[in-house]
Amino acid sequence: MTTMVELPQVKGVKNIPIQELFTSGHRTCQGCESALSMRLMIKAAGPRSIVVGSTGCMYVANTTYYSTPWVVPWMHTQLGSSGSAATGTAAGLRALMRKGKIKDEPINVIAFCGDGGGVDMGLSALSAALTTDYNMMILLYDNESYANTDIQVSGSSPWGANSTFSPPGKSKHIMNRRWKKNTAPMLATGHPDCRYVATSCGSYGLDMTNKIRRALTIGGPTFIHSIDPCPKGWDYDPKYSHELGMLSIETGLWVLYEIIDGELILNGPSRAIAKGMKKRRPVREYLERQGRFAHFTEEDHKYFQEKVDRSWEEWYLPGVLPVHPQLDD
């Protein structure tokens, strides 16, 4: 696969491809933002793609035997294997094409994983994949819990969130005391040759479409981390999926950016916030819309807000990189 599928940047929401390559009849929850991520992802990539998906909602709820929502070829891979699945698919195709065993043509190789598969179990395979030279994209759809298995806390769950493994109780009302892993920057800084790492959100469809296309055309392995509001695990009326996605960014909790060849470019509201053109909304506006935070006390809200403030006011790269130079430098 010397060449790559031609995927120009899309100018304007009305030019997003009309064709559905992830169609109806999957079994996800009402208002499943991860299903939307799947749909936008493959819309952007087009029909000359192979998709491998690791275990999680987008496998179990999405692809239930004897029927499928996929128009493009799709295959399951194990929970911790999105990186290996992409690598194996790309390696097989490259060998077959180089040896003339199949037609030499551009094919998008895409693997996806949830936060459990990517941020927890699959992290080492994901890292290994980003050190190869295969053209492939890995999309992490992050609904902030093991939502499919009954909503258990993951390394990507927010501090204090209610889950079946972190229920607020009489003696401990905050069971999950871990702060959400900062995954995209970890992968960007940890893999200097990886040319493209980005964050996205289905609520910003055009932004996501163009990030998918850049990830698939820049060359080499690339990674996109998408925040996917989950009505089930977060406990909210499904019609608010889109709004909560926006809120997570407007409160500064989730930051939209892409890192192209090491250059950080903030996008959308995050850019406006960083440039001081837009004030961050109080995190409370986001937290109080979700049942998973309903047990928060005033102190909890204060703690949460302060953590977010610090990430914008003290981090070297505000909202992105949690380091700062030694003061006397």
Binding site: I50, S84, G88, T89, A91, A95, L96, I102
Partner: peptide, 10 residues
């Protein structure tokens, strides 16, 4: 896992 997926594409 890698050879498994390579095998799936032939």
């Amino acid at each position: 896992e890698i050879v498994k997926h390579a095998s799936s594409v032939g």
